[in-house]
Simulated assay, not measured.
Amino acid sequence: MSFVRRYLLPRLITYFLVVFVGLTIVFFLPRFLPSDPIQAYIDRLITQGGNLNPEYFNKLVETIKELYGLQGSLWNQYVNFWKRLLKGDFGPSYFQFPTPVMKLIRQSLPWTAWLLFVTTVISWIIGNILGGLAGYFSDKKWVKILDGIAMVIRPMPYYILALGLLILLAYIFPIFPIGGGFAIGMKFTFSWENLLILLKHAFLPALSLVLIGVFSWFQAMKLVVQSVKTEDYVKYAKMGGVEERRIVRRYVIRNAMLPQITGLALSLGQIFGGALITEIVFSYPGIGSLLYNAIFTGDYNLLMGISTLSILLVTTSILVIDLLYPLFDPRVRYR
């Protein structure tokens, strides 16, 4: 009962409060954008040669307002926003009308999720292992080599590294496809041949994300381990004749992993941030490309759908890690 009252309940309250505030911001923010989706839709009809009869103009405007949730006062729009949100209905997309927003998200999310989730986890594991060993054995020659590589790759803007890999391995040496997530005109079915095509298209974007991610986690973990290894309990373990391998694994890296676990939760929640640049550079289908089109066309419904999904993913991942934290840190269980 003490765990529920002192640990679980405050975190659940914070979780729902953050979700509520975040979704409220998602509602108001697109309405302050300079673009007007209704006027943009009418302008598009005019440029395509559409003839707007004045008799039906007001009816058309009212219909579009209803589709975009812009009907009535701001308060009415806000109430309707929550009603539609609880039903999982964000209405139709503007630039792919009349396709529902949720259908577009369901089509794009698997591409982003598997690529960025897998690369984030891989880079986190490799980066923390290398960083933990490098922080403890900092005088080794291989550590200095990795430090030199990290100093070059880590500060490099992501799009520069991505474009460099694209030019090198897709243009100069045409080993991998220039862009896309699958072969053009082919329908994906589960077979070894199609799986290889899928992996070939995903290799360059995955490699660029892993390289940046590995050296980011490497440097962070190395600094934490260098601080942890100077603690008194590590010195006492050495004086007590504890095997060095055990000291590294059980005393140093295990304690240094705690802030890295929190960082992993934030990284998993913020995969849409990496999706935007990755998918634009490599023409990769997914949430990033969808978000870019939504911003470019002023698609209110699609912007709110993607932003809502991002907020829920970030807050939920942090909540899950926070609830699992007592399993990693005995001090939390003690308190």
Rank of each mutant, 00 (worst) to 15 (best):
F328T: 07
L312D: 03
E66H: 07
T297C: 00
V210P: 01
P330N: 11
N76A: 08
G305T: 09
E193S: 15
G274H: 03
Y233Q: 03
K103P: 00
T316W: 09
I167Q: 09
I46E: 14
V121P: 09
L324V: 13
A202W: 04
G91P: 09
Q39R: 13
R106L: 14
Q270A: 11
A294S: 11
A40N: 12
V224I: 14
A220R: 13
R333E: 12
I129N: 05
F27S: 06
L312G: 04
R84S: 12
M156N: 09
K222W: 06
M304F: 05
F282L: 05
D232R: 03
F190I: 15
Y292D: 01
P259R: 03
T14N: 11
R246M: 15
A113N: 00
T262G: 10
W142H: 13
D299Q: 05
R84T: 05
I13Y: 06
K229M: 14
L130A: 11
W82H: 01
S2T: 15
F137L: 11
E55Q: 14
A162T: 07
S93T: 14
M221I: 03
D89N: 14
L9T: 10
F16N: 03
D43I: 08
V18I: 15
I105L: 13
Q226A: 01
Y7E: 07
L86T: 05
F190S: 09
